[in-house]
């Protein structure tokens, strides 16, 4: 691997490898995965976001609209252990805070990396 410090666009593999690297380095980590979408959604099913215990993240599950909320949930999942199935859409009461501007709905599965 290159020693370059230039930021590189993360592939799907890079997201998984980052999660594995965080765990190998003794950090808590979680993975968030888009498991279903309805209507317009910025990222397709299978898109992933890796999160560590400090809230660092790599990848995406939306166009930036819900990552903040997903990270908050992920930090709780890292401590509690049980996975969560989240749903985000304009029908949420918090639509203006964490909803999708595009009007779609996404289901995101958040799991701890053991």
């Amino acid at each position: 691997m290159s020693e370059s410090t230039t930021p590189v666009y993360p592939s799907t593999d890079a997201v998984l490898r980052q999660a594995a690297a965080w765990r190998a380095g003794g950090r808590k980590a979680a993975l968030a995965t888009v498991v279903a979408t309805w209507g317009s959604s910025p990222r397709p099913v299978g898109s992933q976001l890796a999160i560590d215990e400090e809230g660092n993240m790599l990848g995406s599950v939306s166009g930036g609209c819900i990552e903040g909320a997903v990270v908050t949930e992920a930090l709780e999942v890292m401590d509690a252990g049980a996975p969560r199935l989240l749903e985000f859409g304009v029908s949420d009461e918090n639509a203006w805070e964490v909803g999708l501007a595009c009007g779609g709905t996404v289901q995101v599965f958040v799991e701890r990396v053991e």
Partner: peptide, 22 residues
Amino acid sequence: LDALLQARTAKKAAVLVTHLAD
């Protein structure tokens, strides 16, 4: 996760099946 990453490195196809409830 390690088995999945090994499959990716070997360029082999894989499917991860997750039970969303547990």
